[in-house]
Design a protein around this nucleic acid. Structure first.
Lengths: 339, 339
DNA sequence: TTGAAAGCGATACCAC
DNA sequence: GTGGTATCGCTTTCAA
């Protein structure tokens, strides 16, 4: 007993014009007499008519839907991205389909396929965990894709990232300025571009400061709290000497802080800690976490705008790579090295 | 330069049968000769054909898409719901469209309309902020809707909630057992069903324990950290006497703890605090937060399964209300009242 | 058991 | 400027 929706046909009848004319009015295309147009608009209003997006999409048209693929919406970082994307999409009348991949490349690919079949007009992938080949295929075949917080240097896919290298550089430089030399690097997955770039920034700051690089101080894991906690405990138990830690994200940093504190050591007295992202809980940590702030929400928003641009003007432009500037937010988890 | 997708027609030609037959095979409907069926399946495989979901939806069919409407994906509580919904949806081949309402009823309604137009097969609404009338319309018109964490007692809409009254009762009873009598209630919005129910549980526990109810100890705000912080500071400044606080969610509770601590008072020595939800950060709070745990992820999952059931068997059943049992998780933010 | 044909709702090309 | 009509991909009677 579905409610009979009003269609373009009803409008045409009511306005005493042809379906074609109504279509023209709706899409603002072709010539329509001002008076006729008025009549049609009137009818549309009275009938409370809205075109059926499905039917629109059928004839090779647009579905006004975009896909958003991300590792896990439950992970602190992604809800803000999702929100940014959705807000930007809503403004332009688009709707967002969400997909979680759990960082499994196969899941990502499978979602890509589903979205393609659902005729989405474009796809945003945050924190992609694939090698990008399938993505490249899609964009080449005409389905716009924008990457967030991840790039494939060898491929030509639009992306929005923040300057991870620069951010990390700022963070480590800050630690060096405070007198630290033995700085632990706690990364996420080895093959994640953000971890790689942040490691590069770490190395650059060290090199520039003439501090020898100690590979024993570089550790990887994943982007979760537990990873930071566990990694730090390991380092502590191995007895590796260090006085500060730069973590590739806030969750790792907070895990590290908790690990340090669990051994009755103190931050920043015994160890300084810097994170990356500036999630909501960073400022609530004890001590409040010094971290590199990324405009997460804006990244989502910008990515979506980029995508919508591409959808609307499918002129094959050069791939665009937007790189946002991160900011070092000084709080209380870092202090001058006490000798 | 879109890739020409293979259509049902291609399959029909390849298999030397009619389009109708192919359709039957795809949908497993009607009679098809086993041999014919085999031929068609073969063709489908070879052509790597997958039906266009848009076209499917057009003729009044199913779109294999459901909508998920929630206040704000950025709010700690909802990502888990979203994840539960998505996981359950994926298993059954459904895809999820996400919509944020910011607790604005008009936004909710507008999303409802968009989703209806997009011919989603069903809708899940978490933390609805409307009066439910439009929702009722939709379900009556044949579009299944399931509510999460919210009910409209006067309407006949399926829902998945946890037993808020019982959870709150447990929490407050716990405080009473510890000797507390002057217990502050910090709610979210007055008109939110979860806040109302939790307040009922609070009142019930008090009444049952023969503790007089003091309206001055009942305060509202919203479900965010800041609300808990601000409310508590206000109470402190008014000099209202109390020894414990029961907050309607963890964010409020943590805000309250921070407010208390900001005045150099201590939890649980000076004040015991209990929250609701058991979000990830509850156990990381200092002191770790005693709280009422809700199976958030499962709520999303169950809601989705309920919805998919309804979609598949549209037999007008009685509305179903699933009520999950919450658990009191004892941690260190509560202690016996010191005299 | 299978095929032909009529929609579903809207777009777009082609006449008038 | 406006109307007719083929078309998009698939489902669904209705006959055969």
């Amino acid at each position: 007993m579905k409610i009979a929706k009003t269609t373009i046909k009803d409008v045409a009848e009511k306005a005493q014009v042809s379906i074609s004319t109504v279509s023209r009015v709706i899409n603002n295309s072709g010539y329509v007499n001002a008076e006729t147009k008025h009549k049609v608009m009137e009818a549309i209003r009275e009938l409370d008519f809205e075109p059926n997006p499905l039917a629109k999409g059928l004839g090779g048209g647009k579905s006004n839907t975009i896909g958003l693929i991300l590792p896990d919406i439950t992970n602190l970082f992604f809800p803000s991205i999702a929100r940014g994307v959705e807000d930007a999409a809503t403004v332009q009348g688009y709707t967002v389909i969400l997909g979680n991949t759990d960082n499994v490349a196969a899941n990502e690919e499978s979602y890509l396929n589903v979205l393609e079949r659902k005729s989405v007009d474009g796809i945003i992938i945050a924190g992609s965990s694939s090698d990008g080949s399938r993505i490249q295929e899609l964009t080449t075949s005409g389905l716009p894709v924008v990457l967030v917080d991840r790039t494939f240097p060898s491929l030509t896919i639009d992306s929005v990232t923040s300057d991870n290298l620069e951010g990390a550089y700022l963070a480590v430089k800050h630690l060096v300025t405070l007198g630290h030399e033995k700085i632990l690097f706690l990364g996420g997955g080895t093959n994640i571009s953000t971890t790689q770039e942040r490691e590069q920034g770490y190395l650059k700051a060290l090199r520039e400061s003439g501090i020898p690089i100690n590979r024993n101080l570089i550790h990887y894991g994943d982007y979760r709290f537990e990873s930071g906690f566990d990694r730090l405990i390991e380092v502590l138990e191995k007895g590796l000497p260090f006085t500060a830690v730069f973590a590739a994200n806030d969750l790792i940093a907070i895990g590290a802080i908790r690990a340090i504190q669990s051994r009755n050591l103190h931050v920043p007295q015994d160890f300084s800690v810097v994170g990356f992202d500036d999630i909501f809980w960073a400022k609530l940590e004890r001590p409040p976490l010094t971290t590199v702030a990324q405009p997460i929400y804006r990244m989502g928003m910008i990515a979506c705008e980029l995508l919508l641009d591409k959808i609307k003007l499918p002129s094959q432009q050069e791939p665009r790579h937007i790189v946002l500037k991160p900011d070092l937010v000084l709080r209380q988890s870092t202090a001058a090295l006490s000798l």
